[in-house]
Design a protein around this nucleic acid. Sequence first.
DNA 1: CAGTTACCATCGGCTTTACCGATAGATAGG
DNA 2: CCTATCTATCGGTAAAGCCGATGGTAACTG
Lengths: 293, 293
Amino acid sequence: MFNSIDSLTAFVHAAQLGSFSAAARHMGKSQSTVSEAISQLEIDAGVALFDRRTRQPTLTAAGTRLLSHAQHVLHSHAALRQQALALQSGEEAQLSIVLSDTFQSQAFETLLTAFAERFPLLRLECLVGEDDDVLALLRSGRAQLGVMRAQGRYQADVSAQALPGHTAMALYVGAEHPLAQAAQVNEAQLLQHRELRLSTYTSSPAGPHSPRCWLAPSYLLLLELTARNFGWAALPTWLAAQFGHGQLVQLNTANWPQATTLDLVWLRTAQLGPAACWLIEQLQHAGHTAAAR
Amino acid sequence: MFNSIDSLTAFVHAAQLGSFSAAARHMGKSQSTVSEAISQLEIDAGVALFDRRTRQPTLTAAGTRLLSHAQHVLHSHAALRQQALALQSGEEAQLSIVLSDTFQSQAFETLLTAFAERFPLLRLECLVGEDDDVLALLRSGRAQLGVMRAQGRYQADVSAQALPGHTAMALYVGAEHPLAQAAQVNEAQLLQHRELRLSTYTSSPAGPHSPRCWLAPSYLLLLELTARNFGWAALPTWLAAQFGHGQLVQLNTANWPQATTLDLVWLRTAQLGPAACWLIEQLQHAGHTAAAR
DNA sequence: CAGTTACCATCGGCTTTACCGATAGATAGG
DNA sequence: CCTATCTATCGGTAAAGCCGATGGTAACTG
């Protein structure tokens, strides 16, 4: 039968081994089964697949042509079965995680290579969000895991776990900004210039420091605005170092730079799959190398 | 059953239509068959594919993930069936043709686009050979069709058919060759310089014109040697025009350039498939535009 | 040149399963 | 509340997949 995977398997094995009997042994079936399966296959195809004049049946030209197609079918079918096996073992179908830009993605990538080996079929989605956006994405079910700046406290349905290491935040201006030349900058001076501040999609920002204030939803966008001298901003130092291209100047201000810890957060109500649990475990143990810059 | 294509078809249709009954109607089977097939599929997969709490069953996350794999299987299976259908209708599995470099390939390509549409699954192989190499490839079964310089007569097992149009052959030297400046060249002068002559793999060349003679198995290689001023050669004019890059000079000699007709040849004993017959027919009719430059 | 071995095709019988129609429970819409 | 439509389930039937046995054939061997 053309519609039976087993028939195609018999065909491919017979073609590769050059023997129906060997294919039957290989599949744990009787020789007559393989012979009949291939006969039926030839009836369905309307052409002979094997030349049986010799002792060892050899593929005909048509058989050669169909063999590659049959192998393709078997490959995709094997992928289907493997995916089913992964799902059967409880593996989630898709894992979405939200990362804050304060979390250095570069170090995270080494962990991802191990993740790809461990869960080769899992679809992974990486989102970027800050602060309450992260929590909103978790609550909406859009994501299962988040990495965000440590909040003082969380609502009852949120599990949080501190990641080892720190992320430093500092104040920056563009190289052409008036404050760029100042050796020391106090808070009064800051208030006289425009602040570039992180906003989130879900909530309006808390009372702005500066009366003149621009908002952007990502640190990368803030960095761009800062580099174009539109104002000063608090940015992760690693982001400024990696994407600042020397156009940023760090301000020397009291209480800055500040060290921030990162929290790994997830919903207490959502039962996490093995991939999410594996990620959590890896992040909190090998996380030393991932979070420390 | 995971091993049945029909089950996967039922699964995919049900997922796309959002209804087992609709899928059953679409497949010409009863509703219970589809229901049982998907049930069995879920047992094999070990996960639920559909969420049946609502009236219209909707895919679960695992079902969504498996759906794409199942579709992939069905696509490759459809390709298999289509190939089988093509072979069943008598279409050859592979067509190999040998083209002489005297046949302008550029014009041939327009014919090939039509060929690709007419026989989308056929594997086509284009070989290059000259004179008796073409016939040797036909006899060995390596190729089914050949285009070569018209020979005076052929052996009994070869069918030959003149292609409309002509191919001009002319004598060339490189721009730096001693003969390049001559307004007129006679045969005695030619004999004083090295001839670059076409040889074939199968037979030693007929008595050379020139006592100093280099041999090469393809016109393109001859052209290269000529351009480097190693001697004079008889080349197809279209080849010299297209690949000579202005480095070739055509000699003004009695009896040159010569017009050569091309023959389409095949073995009388080999029964040709529809694709080969189609090509023969196209070449001798629409061949006007293909062979005429 | 037999003898042997391994191979394939075929047949009868058994088991499995794919399929259908009927039926019952459930859900959305009038 | 009623109806139409959906899915799940059950029993019966036809088909298929599968096996073991048998016979014929090609290659190897002494």
